[in-house]
């Protein structure tokens, strides 16, 4: 019995706890503040620990954990009033900011001047659907298929959210860089 219990937590530590950074990063982007993010991660890890016997070994543990985290966020952390509204197409997504910078800074070196705080703020201002897709893909490096599985949407939807989220984020950072004089 004790041996079984030890093997249980050892397996959990080895396979699940290595993804703590990913969980925290996604939690932070969902909740928008460190205190809630920490509570959300702890809640997620406990749920995963209790359900560890149900986790199918050898499948994608990170995607499994992020799915639990997202469901926990929806059920326990998100206030009803804050449910994301469906996002309308915005004309800012039609044009890449590359067209505006190609003569002055085609390599996008202005990105390097942007402070961390502003990067966080810009990501946070994205609509939730886009924000989650961008963070899972571009920060955490998950594939379109993994993201589709976590969010329960078709791969085509992931592609479109990524496209629109990236375009909006670029525009937001570009406008900040202009304000700060990082682009001549």
């Amino acid at each position: 019995m004790a041996q079984k219990k030890a093997a249980h937590s050892e397996g959990f530590e080895r396979e699940a706890l290595v993804h703590l950074d990913t969980l925290y990063n996604v939690a932070l982007r969902l909740t928008g503040n460190a205190a809630d993010a920490e509570d959300l991660v702890q809640e997620t890890v406990l749920k995963a620990y209790r359900a560890w016997d149900m986790y199918e070994r050898g499948t994608n543990c990170r995607a499994w954990l992020v799915t639990i985290l997202r469901n926990t966020f929806i059920n326990q952390f998100r206030k009803q009033s804050k449910k994301p509204a469906s996002v309308q197409f915005d004309s800012v997504e039609d044009v890449s900011i590359f067209e505006s910078v190609q003569d002055r800074d085609p390599a996008g070196s202005f990105f390097r001047h942007i402070v961390d705080e502003e990067v966080t703020r810009a990501i946070q201002e994205l609509p939730e659907d886009f924000r989650v897709a961008v963070v899972l893909s571009d920060v955490e490096g998950l594939s379109y298929g993994e993201i589709a599985e976590i969010l329960g949407v078709p791969v085509g939807t992931v592609k479109s959210r990524l496209f629109r989220g990236r375009r909006r984020l670029q525009r937001r950072l570009y406008e900040y860089a202009l304000e700060m004089g990082y682009i001549g």
Binding site: L20, D21, L23, Y24, N25, L28, V41, S96, F98, V101, Q102, P106, A107, G108, S109, F111, R112, I114, D116, V119, I123, V134, V135, D138, V139, E140, G141, R166, L169, Q170
Partner: peptide, 21 residues
């Protein structure tokens, strides 16, 4: 050039968007 710009943007996001626990 646009391909290079998009790659630079995604590299930037990967480096600067992460927050460790």
């Amino acid at each position: 050039p646009q391909y290079e710009f998009e790659k630079a943007f995604l590299r930037f996001l990967a480096q600067r968007g992460a927050n460790g626990a």
